[in-house]
């Protein structure tokens, strides 16, 4: 039984240690906001925060997590969808199908924590999540809008 801290709560998980965090979240903790897109850390749909850093949870095994690691998923990013990025996303109607957007927001949130006023070049370098609907232009606008609100 592994003990991990997710969204501020310590929970016990009965899963094989090799199970990726993504599947622990989705199948054991019923937190399905992190999505399965590729399984090999290429697309970013599974992005969560581990100790404040964006992590692609599909390749992050349960074994590698200790009880003191703080895991935050989209469900824990804000109580009520009020994170500046979430508000900007709603204001700009960023999502299309939306499947990649939770990972996109988590990647952007980690970026803003580290770099509160990212330039376009910073966004280009840091946001490598795949969106097949092609929301990139609004994603960029949403990050800037959230950065300005936080400032």
């Amino acid at each position: 039984m592994a003990r991990i801290n997710v969204n501020g709560k310590t929970v016990e998980v009965d899963a094989d240690g090799s199970t990726p965090l993504l599947w622990v979240l989705r199948e054991h903790l019923e937190l399905t906001g992190a999505k399965y897109g590729c399984g090999v850390a290429l697309c970013g749909a599974c992005t969560v925060h581990v100790n404040g850093e964006a992590q692609r949870s599909c390749v992050f095994p349960l074994d590698a997590i200790t009880e003191t690691d703080r895991i935050v998923t989209i469900e824990g990013l804000s109580e009520d969808g009020s994170h500046p990025l979430q508000k900007a996303w709603v204001d700009l109607d960023v999502p299309q199908c939306g499947y990649c957007q939770t990972g996109m927001i988590m990647a952007a949130a980690a970026l803003l924590e580290r770099n509160p006023q990212p330039s376009d070049a910073d966004i280009d370098a840091e946001i490598t999540n795949i969106c097949r609907c092609g929301t990139y232009r609004r994603v960029r606008a949403g990050i800037h809008q959230a950065a300005n609100e936080k400032a």
């Binding site: 906001g33 999505k35 399965y36 469900e75 990025l85 709603v90 960023v94 939306g98 939770t102």
Partner: peptide
């Protein structure tokens, strides 16, 4: 009409 749940992780897709 379908944005709010897509930014909080509440939207349930088939895979979810």
């Amino acid at each position: 009409l379908d944005t709010a749940e897509k930014v909080t992780g509440k939207q349930v897709y088939g895979a979810d």
